[in-house]
């Protein structure tokens, strides 16, 4: 009467903030699914990167430095996209665009700097919230209950 129950032993549902296909192709690179050494170090490396980037964004906001904000947005966009962190990536892309005085879709606008900065400031709040959400999900996934 023994029966297999393992058909559905897939990875947990990461919700819509993480693109499962993208993230799973990284998980597949783990040599050992017990400690998930590789993906874990990537993800935790990303956490550090994100924290550092957010700090830089905050100070660039204080300095009204649009171009710095744009390149910080671009920077975090790359790594978040590679991990499949869709929401974070989208917000970063917005910051990148606003910093270049463009609209959400990357088309040039005539917004003045103050307007661009306020858009960025709002988006930075959003991206931080998005980030906290994925951080929580990912930490839970890696069995990190601390904090």
């Amino acid at each position: 009467m023994a029966e297999s129950e393992n058909g559905s032993m897939a990875l947990p549902d990461f919700g819509d903030s993480i693109d499962a296909l993208t993230f799973e192709q990284i998980l597949e690179m783990d040599d050992d699914e017990e400690d998930r050494e590789f993906s874990k170090s990537i993800v935790y490396g990303f956490f550090e990167q994100a924290d550092a980037t957010f700090k830089k964004m905050d100070s660039a906001l204080k300095d009204n430095d649009l171009s710095a904000l744009s390149s910080l947005g671009h920077f975090l966009k790359g790594s978040s996209a590679t991990l499949g962190l869709t929401k974070v990536k989208d917000s970063c892309e917005k910051i990148q665009h606003y910093g270049q005085r463009k609209d959400v879709n990357g088309n040039p606008t005539h917004d003045n700097d103050a307007r661009c900065l306020s858009l960025i400031s709002d988006t930075v709040k959003v991206v931080k919230a998005d980030y906290e959400e994925v951080e929580r999900v990912l930490k839970r996934f890696y069995g990190d209950t601390g904090k």
């Binding site: 009467m1 029966e3 297999s4 393992n6 032993m9 017990e34 069995g143």
Partner: peptide, 26 residues
């Protein structure tokens, strides 16, 4: 023994090695 305290992960690992949960349908 396994450096973590996540039962689900333990089960998943078992699964990877083709262990089956024994279910008693009697």
């Amino acid at each position: 023994h396994f450096k973590h305290s996540n039962f689900a992960s333990f089960v998943r690992q078992l699964n990877k090695y083709d262990f089956h949960k024994v279910r008693h349908n009697n």
